[in-house]
Amino acid sequence: MSFDSFSEFLAMGGHGLYVWLSYALGLVLIVYNLLAPRRERKRLLAEQTRRLLREGNRQ
């Protein structure tokens, strides 16, 4: 551990804003990158299933 208390950990020796801002941005970008294809997959599956059922009914 390089910090003695939790408040010191948050303050980051006066650089808290910069460090936490960077890590927050990193988290946002990583989570977005993971969620975007997941949502896309759900949309794609639903769309194609609907198309398949529609075409199946027509025959």
Binding site: M12, G13, H15, Y18, V19
Partner: peptide, 16 residues
């Protein structure tokens, strides 16, 4: 964030 040592010149901003 918590365990790596801070840089002697840049302090904790080095963690970026």
């Amino acid at each position: 964030l918590a365990f790596a040592p801070a840089d002697y010149q840049q302090g904790n901003s080095f963690r970026i």
